[in-house]
Simulated assay, not measured.
Amino acid sequence: MTVSTPCIKICRIDAESRLCTGCWRFLDEIAAWGGMTEAERLAVMASLPERKARFTSPPSASPA
């Protein structure tokens, strides 16, 4: 059985957010991954594009 995963084998954990900037999962998600159902994994994976965009977007400019 193949387990769905967003892992790209480039693990870079941001200490502040506890987020892997390789796959965009949080450490608790990575730790729980093997015990998750396929539906749970797919739900996490569906959230990753928005999460990546949120964490890689430049901060909004403050009005002067």
Rank of each mutant, 00 (worst) to 15 (best):
G34C: 05
R18T: 00
D14M: 03
E29P: 08
P6H: 05
R41T: 08
W24M: 11
A39Q: 15
F26W: 07
R25N: 08
M36V: 13
L19D: 04
L27P: 00
C20S: 02
W24I: 02
I8P: 05
C7F: 13
A15I: 06
R25T: 00
A39I: 13
R25E: 07
T37A: 07
R25D: 07
W24Y: 14
T37Y: 09
V44C: 14
K9G: 03
A46M: 14
F26Q: 02
G34V: 06
R25F: 05
S47A: 15
C7V: 10
E29I: 09
W24P: 04
P6R: 09
A32R: 13
C7N: 13
P6G: 08
V44W: 03
K9D: 13
M45I: 12
M45D: 05
C11R: 04
T21M: 01
C23N: 01
D14E: 07
C23G: 03
A15V: 07
E38W: 07
P6C: 03
C7K: 12
R18F: 00
E29D: 12
L27D: 02
K9T: 00
E29A: 09
L27F: 01
L27K: 06
L19A: 00
R41W: 05
S47E: 15
R18D: 06
P6D: 09
V44D: 02
T21K: 04
A39H: 14
C23F: 04
L27G: 00
A46W: 14
A46E: 15
I10K: 12
R12L: 11
T21P: 00
K9V: 02
I10N: 13
R41P: 08
C11V: 08
D14P: 04
T21H: 03
G35Y: 06
E40I: 11
L19G: 01
W24Q: 08
A43E: 15
W33P: 08
S17N: 02
A39F: 12
A31N: 12
A31R: 14
P6I: 13
K9S: 06
A31V: 13
A39K: 15
D28A: 08
E38M: 10
